[in-house]
Structure formats: C-alpha cells, structure tokens
Design a protein around this nucleic acid. Structure first.
Length: 256
DNA sequence: CGATTTTGACCAGCGC
DNA sequence: GCGCTGGTCAAAATCG
C-alpha cells in the first residue's frame, strides 16, 4: 500500500564538474579499481556519504508522514461512521417525528416553500452560540429577535455566495432549549467539505490498488490532502497535537 | 490584513 | 398612511 519512492535515484545529483557516466560506472563496476570508493579523502565520497545520510532521514520523514496520514485516515473514517450512527439514532428519529408532527399541524399558508428544509438539531443547552456543523461553510449576515420566540434568530449565507444561493436560519426551539431549528432555503451547487472527504476516501482504494497511483491520479491526492487539511485544521486540538507530534518526530530524526 | 461576526439602520410586505 | 415584523445591508469591531 505504501507508495515507494526511490530517493537514492532522485536525490543523487553529481556535481557539475563530475561526468555522470563516470560516477555511475565507478559505483556499479565490481571488477575494476575501487579507488573512487576507497579514497576516504575524496570529496565525492564525503558527498555520497552525506547524501546517503540525508536520504535515510528523508525516508524516515516519509515513513513518519505516511504513518500520520494512515492515522488521520482512520480518524476520518471513524468520524464518518459515528456521524452515520448518530443520523440513525433514536434521538434523531424523535426530532424528525416532532418536525413531521409540527408540519402536519401547521396551517397550509405557513408550510415551508418547496426547496425549504427544516431540520431540528440537538445542541448543548448551555451553548448560547447558534453554530450548527452541517459540513458546509456559512457566513453570518444578521441576527434578529423574533416576536414569537425570545431566542434570537441567526441568518447565514453559504460562503460560496453569490455562486451558491443557499441561506439558512438558525433559532433555538421554544419547547426544548437543547434543540435548534435550522431552516435551509435552496440547494447547494457544490459538495460539502464532508462530501469531498467522503468522495476522496471512497475512491482511494481503487487508486491505491494500482501501482501507477501517483502517475494516474495526482489530482485525487491533492483533493484528499486539501480536504482533510481543511476539515481537520478546524479542530484546535488536532492542530496542536499535530504540531507536537511533528516536532517530536523532527527531534527523533535529528538525533538519528 | 483579510475574513468573519456584530449590530443598528434600513427596506418591503402586510394588516388595520 | 402608519405601525409592526421579518429579512437584509453595511460599517464597525473582532478574530486568527
């Protein structure tokens, strides 16, 4: 599964005054005089030794980076799994039933327009912010206290506006302080961050199964890394732990 | 310094 | 026309 890179080949760069053919010949030919290798005071030998050590360090760094990538990959998959479980939870079903019931009782003229979706989301009652994590990025453009509810209503536009016309309103439920009512208007014309990550992960195995992975689809790696970075960098714990992990690994490599 | 949030002002629709 | 209400704008403040 690990994409191997032969760093020995790519990093070995002879100096301008050393013909390439000569260097390769001296390294490969066992029958000939090994003076090129044996001469300890030859600057080329020192250069080779230095590059070799550098090569080892780079391999180590690559290994560490790959381990971290796998670890992050596992965390993202776990989050996906948890989210799907939450979506199927009895609590969520109860909210959806409540919504259905309230819509059923609602007069026809007050029913939401087509393209409008109402979602009830459980939140921490002590948390006064009206932030609902739904996988999209939003820009708040207003807040009002409405007549029928003492809790303020927050107005958001999709961050991709005006390209994406979607708006949402977020207001704490009058009946249950642990629930916010989110009203979405319109349809997104782009993927959410979570959908981007899910897409990349769903196609990752196909790509990884081919030996020409990096040649065939370099863009997929870019999308995966970019989306994972965007998604995970939102978590302050993740960024601090990542920084700590990288710094400790760098120290390990330096003492190698 | 750019992006985002806050918040008072403003506007449109509706009922009286 | 006037007042009420929900929705939006935009300048100032705040954040990273």
């Amino acid at each position: 599964m690990v994409a191997t890179l032969d760093l020995n080949l790519t990093l070995f760069c002879p100096t301008d005054d050393t013909p390439v053919n000569e260097v390769i010949f001296n390294l490969d030919d066992d029958d000939e005089d090994h003076s090129f290798v044996k001469e300890a005071d030859d600057p080329s030998v020192e250069e080779l030794s230095r590059i070799s050590k550098e090569n080892m360090k780079l391999k180590e760094s690559l290994s560490v980076a790959w381990d971290m990538y796998n670890s992050l990959n596992a965390q993202v998959k776990k989050l996906m799994h948890d989210k799907e479980e939450l979506e199927c939870s009895p609590k969520k079903r109860k909210f959806e039933e409540t919504v259905q019931q309230s819509l059923w009782k609602m007069p026809n003229d007050k029913l939401p327009r087509s393209g409008t979706k109402i979602v009830y989301v459980p939140v921490d009652p002590s948390d006064k912010s009206l932030v609902v994590k739904d996988g999209y990025q939003w820009r708040k453009y207003g807040q009002k206290v409405t007549r029928d509810n003492p809790s303020p209503r927050a107005y958001y536009k999709c961050s991709f506006a005006p390209t994406c016309p979607v708006k949402k309103k977020v207001q704490r439920s009058m009946d249950d302080n642990g629930v916010v009512m989110v009203t979405y208007e319109g349809e997104h014309n782009h993927r959410s961050t979570m959908q981007e990550v899910r897409y990349a992960l769903a196609h990752e195995s196909e790509i990884l199964s081919t030996s020409e992975r990096r040649v065939d689809s370099p863009k997929l790696d870019e999308v995966l890394v970019e989306q994972m970075a965007t998604y995970l960098s939102k978590d302050p714990n993740f960024t601090s732990e990542l920084a700590a992990a990288i710094s400790s690994k760098i120290l390990e490599v330096e003492t190698f």
